[in-house]
Amino acid sequence: MAARAVIEGASVPAFPRHVKFHFNKQREQWVILAPERLLVPDETSIEILKMCDGKTSVDGIVGRLVEKYNAPHDVILSDVIRMLQDLADKGFLAA
């Protein structure tokens, strides 16, 4: 039986096989596709999701964002974990 993925700093998030994070050229829009589900992520989410490549850890993602936006580490870490955990619980993300 599968277990719930709990997202933490060391987790390495990636899209599972049934989820496609995809740029629709005709609509000029990033979408997350899953069976009978479609999410249209906002700009911040898109930036984070592009780093969910199965290689970069949550800490790695947060590090890059901290540097780019010169923002407090703890705030970004908790925001990123909240967003990714929500996607994982809905079956859109694995770690």
Partner: peptide
């Protein structure tokens, strides 16, 4: 059939979203 989505913009200049 269920399908959840947020508002998306039309694919073309047409009034009807694809």
């Amino acid at each position: 059939m269920t399908m959840t989505t947020t508002k998306t913009k039309p694919a073309s200049a047409s009034q009807v979203e694809a």
